[in-house]
């Protein structure tokens, strides 16, 4: 069982790498969202000729300005879609880690008893702790990926400032990945390293 736990710890290290990558994507996604939402908020203002002040004398400025902003918005949307794809890759990779984790158990020569499954040696985690931990980390990221996808779908040219503010908050908060809970899981798995 001890060897088994070591193998699981190895898997948690992989999860941690994936989560670091997630953090990078998260900050990229937030930046992209902010850029998109500042363009969306500017569009009505740019569409109104009376906001051009002294620039009103420059023919075509409004048309070209709006056109270029729409172009930028289009390319930001594309990049956001790319970032979402990368989030999804992480979710799939976490899913595979969970699957491998289950396989590890089934592939072994002896099927552990419930007692063995729950056995904690010293401050070491039990096999069950490991399996549960991997499973919940995967679920957290899967749900958060779905939230991000729907937030992206909700982002349109007609989004109001308050909609955009709420969506932004939702994206920043990542409600499905509670920091304390994640920390708690890692603390159990790597208890011996913390001491």
């Amino acid at each position: 069982m001890e060897m088994m736990v070591k193998k699981y710890q190895q898997k948690f290290r992989k999860v941690r790498d994936e989560m670091d990558r997630w953090e990078q994507l998260q900050s990229r996604f937030i930046t992209q969202f902010r850029n998109a939402s500042s363009i969306i908020q500017r569009l009505p203002m740019l569409g109104d000729s009376k906001n051009y002040g002294e620039l009103a004398g420059v023919h075509g400025l409004k048309e070209v300005l709006l056109g270029k902003q729409m172009e930028s918005l289009g390319s930001i949307f594309c990049s956001m879609r790319e970032t979402l794809k990368e989030f999804h890759i992480i979710v799939m990779s976490l899913e595979k880690i969970v699957r491998d984790g289950n396989q590890l158990l089934k592939g072994g020569s002896i099927q552990p008893t419930t007692h063995q499954m729950q056995l904690r040696v010293g401050i070491r985690p039990s096999v069950e702790d490991c399996l549960d931990g991997l499973k919940s980390l995967h679920e957290m990221h899967l749900s958060e990926y779905l939230v991000k996808s729907s937030a992206f779908e909700a982002l349109t040219l007609n989004s109001s400032a308050s909609d955009l503010g709420a969506l932004h908050q939702l994206l920043v908060d990542q409600p499905n990945i509670p920091k304390e809970e994640v920390q708690f899981i890692f603390n159990i798995i790597f208890a011996e390293e913390i001491c």
């Binding site: 500017r42 740019l46 002040g53 002294e54 620039l55 009103a56 300005l65």
Partner: peptide
């Protein structure tokens, strides 16, 4: 265009400055 065609003396408001 004419750069001086729209000249006004009032101070530009927030929206105009944003457009600038």
């Amino acid at each position: 265009g004419n750069p001086t065609s729209g000249r006004t003396d009032h101070v530009p408001d927030r929206e105009i400055l944003q457009v600038y």
